[in-house]
Design a protein around this nucleic acid. Structure first.
Length: 425
RNA sequence: GGAGAGGUGGCUGAGUCCGGUUGAAAGCGCCGCACUCGAAAUGCGGUAUGCCCUUUAGUGGGCAUCGUGGGUUCAAAUCCCACCCUCUCCGCCA
């Protein structure tokens, strides 16, 4: 989010960025107007409050000196000023509310290197790794393959929870768990992230901190009795751990990883990916989060992308990297790389990780700062996040890409230690 | 779920009953300077945040903030109300 000051200082930039995203910039003018009115009133109120403060002291002194009648006169005057202050404060409150409402819904400013485009068809291809699945037979989609091999039970999932949920029996569950452990080991080991286990139910403030609220309330599950939200990604829990903190520079960059289930209502996705487990209301994900100094976020963004890729490299799954175009870049992000894995049954690449640099956008919302040196002013951090990687999609990509004519699924070498050396599923 | 205690600055902790230069004592920590070959110890000085106005300016002035939000009052860390959170004991439970 932008603070009024940010807004004033970056009007042109924010407007241009909004237009690149394909959104209207009219709200910006309105916000500027509100801000001007607000500041006028602030000046007026503070002047009155100053008078109130000084004259209240006088009243005290007069009373102490026994000059009751003089005091009475001042008290009457103060009563009038008090009313004026109250009135102006009411106006101010209303203006603040309106302004904040707009500010909370303005997306981050796009990085200059983000390609201009309307939707995902205009994302820029950066790199392709490995060769798409080739075989002398037609690959089965994962739901057929998984069901046939006893790894997936969508019927029973439907029975207990409905559509967009999955049940993984036996080796299916084992594979999921192996993937989680494998990913966490790589990220917390050689890639240098601190592993953290967090709650998956969080307060609304946490959702606001990372940018899910207020704009995307419809995408989230909310518990009615307590008003807590189920996280759509561990980014919410991990980043908000440091909300309202001023960090010491020697802990930066802070690199965190955690596995959690993620919950999404998929409100706007009716009819999309209705078969199989591509799009679920609940799925596992290993998340990567970094909190850093502004000047290092760009480099860390590339590192983070590399760390996400390292999983696919080891699993030897074919993938490509794209930079999201302006119209496809998410609300909180200044720039996003998507990693897309090859899905044989669909004959195309599908997102399996999204790595974003959110610059200071989330840090301002969540008040995550650091003090460059003792005595210096605190500055907002930059935040980054990326999937490292989505477990459910990895599961299905793996069984599809490693399927054989016989219906068997080969376990990639890197994963065998996590499955008791098992070579086939 | 029941009973009780409490939320004050980076930390510890006064002040709250009896409202009035209290942004808030004291100590610790931290920063600067002095002393020292250097360090420790000691001494002196400094040390919250946000916002508004003003200035050529790292200038000057002001407002707000003692868990949060309301209320009473000329004036509230101090009085009243509601809420949130933490801790202790009991109960229940993976």
């Amino acid at each position: 989010m932008f603070l009024p000051k940010n807004l004033r200082e970056n009007v042109a930039e924010i407007k241009i960025s909004l237009e690149k995203r394909g959104e209207s910039s009219s709200s910006i003018d309105q916000a500027i107007k509100l801000d001007e009115e607000r500041r006028e009133i602030i000046a007026e109120v503070e002047q009155l409050e100053h008078r109130r403060n000084t004259e209240s002291v006088q009243i005290g002194e007069l009373k102490a000196a026994g000059e009751e009648s003089k005091a009475e006169g001042l008290i009457e005057e103060m009563a009038r000023i008090k009313q004026q202050i109250q009135q102006l404060n009411d106006q101010l409150g209303e203006l603040d509310r309106q302004l904040e409402d707009i500010l909370l819904r303005i997306p981050n400013i796009l990085d200059e290197s983000v390609p201009i485009g309307a939707d995902n068809s205009e994302n820029r291809l950066e790199k392709q790794v490995g060769e798409p699945f080739k075989a002398d037979f037609d690959p089965l989609p994962h739901w057929e393959l998984g069901t046939a091999r006893g790894l997936l039970d969508l019927e029973r999932a439907q029975k207990i929870s409905g559509s967009r949920f999955s049940v993984l029996p036996g080796k299916g569950a084992r594979l999921e768990r192996a993937l989680i452990n494998f990913m966490l080991d790589i990220q917390s080991g050689e890639n240098g992230y601190q592993e953290i286990m967090t709650p998956v139910l969080v307060k609304p403030e946490a959702m606001e901190g990372t940018g899910q609220l207020p704009k995307f309330a419809a995408d989230m599950y909310r518990t009615t009795d307590d008003g807590l939200y189920l996280i759509p990604t561990a980014e919410v829990s991990l980043l908000n751990l440091y909300r309202e903190e001023i960090l010491s520079p020697d802990v930066l960059p802070l690199k965190l990883t955690g596995w959690t289930p993620c919950f999404r209502r998929e409100a706007g996705a009716h009819g999309k990916d209705t078969r199989g487990i591509m799009r679920q209301h609940q799925f596992n994900k290993v998340e990567l989060v970094a909190i850093c100094r502004p000047e290092e976020s760009e480099e860390l963004h590339n590192d983070l992308l590399g760390d996400a890729c390292s999983i696919l490299n080891r699993l030897e799954l074919p993938y490509r990297i794209v930079t999201l175009c302006s119209g496809d870049t998410g609300f909180s992000a200044a720039k996003t790389y998507d990693i897309e894995v090859w899905i044989p049954s669909q004959n195309r690449y599908r997102e399996i990780s999204s790595c974003s640099n959110c610059t200071a956008f989330q840090a301002r919302r969540a008040m995550i700062q650091y003090r460059p040196a003792p005595g210096e002013k605190a500055r907002y951090c930059h935040t980054l996040n990326g999937s490292g990687i989505a477990v459910g999609r990895c599961w299905l990509a793996l069984i599809e890409n490693y399927q054989e004519k016989t219906g068997e699924i080969t376990v990639p070498d890197a994963l065998r230690p996590y499955l008791d050396g098992l070579k086939k599923l």
